[in-house]
Design a protein around this nucleic acid. Structure first.
Lengths: 142, 142
DNA sequence: GTGGTTCCCATTGACGCCCATGGTGGCCCA
DNA sequence: TGGGCCACCATGGGCGTCAATGGGAACCAC
């Protein structure tokens, strides 16, 4: 399958590394992604990651808006000023930096959540809670 | 027959596997489904499964919304982050993961219930109860 | 040098793939 | 119509492979 799906929780080791689930690595490998682009999610306390092509998509979206609008400015600030590049080691692990920890509250375990064209890093409890809340709201609607 | 009908209860083995009823496997084979998309039902304590085309249907629902809205994000969190791909082994069995157990309460036996374009995994007693209740309500209406 | 990384290698536990067995129902034939 | 044979399905278990994790050692930057 060609998109990021499902979720998995992995442990951070003594050096601050965590394995990206093989399922996600397989998706990355399929599109020959070497370097990951990471940014802070606009809605949730999670850090998102994907190949560099999403950066271009964001830029197009910003370009389509009024360049002086508060929205476009905020988005550009997050995308350009707040994004970082990361790469995985030979075993498919990434280093959990303070950039990630501070924004997500992650300490010793990471929940990876697929989001279709990208995936996210969550503090496990926060993910659980947000997901169950989303389900509850959804049930209320239908 | 080209849809999932009726129900059957099978036992989970020591390795946590359970046979998908051959009736259901036949339906999957007919539409050449190799990989199953599984999600937590929005109403019942059951896990639903179907071919990937269901996922695409969900994604179209998300795609019709503003991609930055909280609504679209929450839906994606459920559909992508809460969904799982599963595949059957050579004998047509699937692994009953914690993803399934936690949500359904399944321990050692699984009731498979056909739902037309998909089928569901239930804890046997929960299925019995839900079905008899549905029958009762139905009778009360007519 | 010293701290923080990156590159490699080791371990182990889970999972996928394969073959075996038994039970049941259907079908054929007498 | 009854008995027996056969095929298929549910189930059990062995074993190899791979992913997740842990840790040593080289390497770089300050």
């Amino acid at each position: 399958m060609n998109r990021f799906l499902s979720n998995a929780t992995n442990r951070i080791d003594a050096k601050g590394r965590v394995s990206v689930p093989s399922m996600f690595r397989a998706v990355l490998a399929r599109s020959a992604v070497e370097e990951l682009y990471a940014w802070q999610d606009f809605v949730f306390p999670a850090v998102s990651m994907a190949g560099p092509e999403v950066l271009e998509r964001f830029e197009r979206m910003i370009g389509s808006q009024d360049p002086f609008s508060a929205e476009a400015n905020k988005m550009s600030l997050l995308i350009h000023g707040g994004g970082v590049f990361m790469k995985l080691d030979g075993e498919g692990r990434l280093l959990v930096t303070d950039f990630i920890r501070d924004f997500t509250g992650i300490t010793d375990r990471v929940t990876f959540a697929g989001r279709g064209d990208h995936f996210q890093l969550w503090e496990p409890a926060a993910f659980e809670e947000m997901q169950s809340r989303a389900r509850k709201e959804r049930t209320a609607i239908s």
